[in-house]
Design a protein around this nucleic acid. Structure first.
Length: 463
RNA sequence: GGUCCCAUCGUCUAACGGUUAGGACAGAUGGUUUUCAAUCAUCUAAUCGGGGUUCGAUUCCCCGUGGGACCGCCA
């Protein structure tokens, strides 16, 4: 059976990761079933649609690796067709012109609110050719929704959802300016694109009952529907564009890897036994709609971080460096070519203490910056005794012809016995002198990661 | 408020109607260590409440309670 799905965001705001997850689920299913995954930009709201948001959507999907088939569809390019369908529905008696003024509608809404009853358009112009048509009012076109009975949708995630038709109002399909609304455009485009599976956030659940009626009126094939639960913020409310951990960029800028975020999103609302880590291939193979839960899930930063840590440790080190380089260029200072080889050489231990690219970047500060700053607190640890140790080491180090761990070990062990101290007694002062902090990588790693003359230079500054 | 949906550790979740209710993240404790980290071991922690159905309910049904979504000439 063919499997053609789409992700259809509107460029009226930045895409958040809830949307990314919806796209991911669609993409996964398309790949799994050797079908198609299309991207459709729903920009029929001319006022609010912005090119920058469209770009942000494209960039976000590209970053996380969700490539779409064909070029992206731009819904506004298809408006003519949407209007034709509206006319056809009108002609066939499935829709009608409504001449209510906006004030009139507003009044009705307020009246309902006062009485505490839910507002539903009163169908004033339905089947009313006899009413006097007011001048100066451009009508909207409304769909003649079913008035009685129940409608049932078999949802691939939610199961059977049933609703009384009486609560589905005669919704607008063409605005007074003649432009189509979402309810119409989405259906027409889905039909034209031969979409077989509509997988979207469950905030669209009710729309299904409206849209299904358009399909039926047009005698079009109705696609399968799957409504996946929404993602909530850590506070438990609906994910808002104002949350500071909601867009892809919020994660890129703290140094999250795309694989980690992809894996995290995959496991949010979906599980396969006890498995936590999924390669792309595994997720394509294993993902299915049956495993998707029905309840919303909360964002959990510590989990994202822990997944990211896993990927940082397991990704190919060449790739990891590439990610780091891009990260530095985009959000920090670019890594200079002279420092590049030093970082590459040391990334295998710089990454071990990191949950994010930001962490790696911070760990690499002592390599990136020739001039290190010693914090006040750490400089306090450099008493006269430690300084003597540093100077002793300095003298020995200069003489060292072959730089390797073995020789360093010998030198340090000599110092340990000479000064009747332990490893820490020697290692800590050296680390402070070389890195500027008592925290940092192992001391051998540090010494070996820097050019010899630079180690000498840093040591010579301690006196 | 109306309609619809949902409900297992703090979080993400697993469990043909039969399990000491499992795993992961977070948290706690201890070991190791060259500081921080990492790592290893151990531990804490859940079936929202009440009724049914059943020999037996996390699982099925009903009622509460709690949470969410929708209620636009937005998408």
């Amino acid at each position: 059976m063919a499997f053609i799905c789409r992700f259809a965001p509107s460029p009226t705001g930045p895409l958040h990761i809830g949307g990314v997850r919806t796209a991911l689920f669609n993409w996964l299913l398309a790949k799994k079933n050797k079908g198609k995954f299309y991207l459709r930009i729903e920009d029929t709201d001319k006022e609010r649609s912005k090119d920058e948001f469209k770009k942000q959507i494209l960039d976000s999907l590209a970053w996380i690796g969700l490539n779409h088939d064909d070029k992206e569809y731009i819904q506004s390019l298809n408006i003519k067709k949407h209007k034709e369908i509206a006319e056809e529905l009108l002609k066939k008696g499935f829709a009608y012109k409504c001449f209510c003024s906006e004030e009139e509608i507003k009044e009705q809404k307020e009246k309902c609110k006062k009485q505490g009853i839910p507002y539903l358009y009163n169908r004033k112009w339905r089947d009313q050719e006899n009413l006097e048509v007011p001048k100066n009012i451009n009508p909207v076109i409304r769909f003649k929704s079913k008035i009685s009975g129940n409608s049932v949708v078999k949802d691939l995630v939610q199961g059977e959802i049933s609703v009384a038709n009486s609560i589905i109002e005669d919704f607008v399909i063409l605005r007074k300016d003649g432009s189509p609304t979402y309810q119409l455009s989405a259906v027409v485009d889905d039909h034209l694109m031969k979409i077989t599976h509509v997988i979207r956030g469950d905030d669209h659940k009710i729309n299904t009952f409206k849209q299904k009626q358009i399909y039926e009126a047009m005698k079009w094939n109705i696609p399968e529907f799957a409504h996946i639960p929404l993602i909530h913020s850590e506070k438990g409310s609906k994910l808002s564009k104002r949350d500071n951990s909601s867009t892809i960029n919020d994660y890129i800028k703290i140094g999250i890897l795309s694989d980690a975020l992809r894996n995290y999103l995959l496991r949010l609302g979906w599980a396969h036994k006890d498995k936590e880590i999924f390669t792309l291939e595994e997720s394509i193979k294993l993902f299915d709609l049956k495993g998707v839960g029905k309840s919303p899930s909360k964002l959990d930063m510590s989990r994202i971080l822990s997944l990211n840590e896993h990927y940082i440790k397991h990704v190919d080190e060449k790739d990891l460096y590439k990610f780091l380089k891009i990260f530095a260029e985009k959000f920090k200072k670019p890594i200079s070519s002279s420092r590049e080889t030093l970082i590459i050489k040391s990334i295998n231990f710089l990454k071990n203490k990191a949950k994010t690219l930001e962490d790696i970047y911070q760990n690499a500060q002592y390599i990136l910056n020739e001039n290190i700053k010693i914090s006040v607190e750490d400089s306090k640890l450099l008493d006269s005794n430690s300084k003597k140790i540093i100077q002793d080491f300095h003298a020995e180090f200069k003489k060292m012809e072959i730089l390797n761990k073995e020789n360093l070990e010998k030198t340090i062990n000599n110092l340990i016995s000479k000064y009747k101290t332990n490893f820490k007694g020697v290692g800590q002062p050296l680390r402070i002198a070389l890195v500027g902090s008592r925290f940092g990588p192992g001391i051998y790693n540090i010494i070996l990661s820097l050019p010899k003359e630079e180690v000498v230079k840093r040591l010579s500054k301690i006196n």
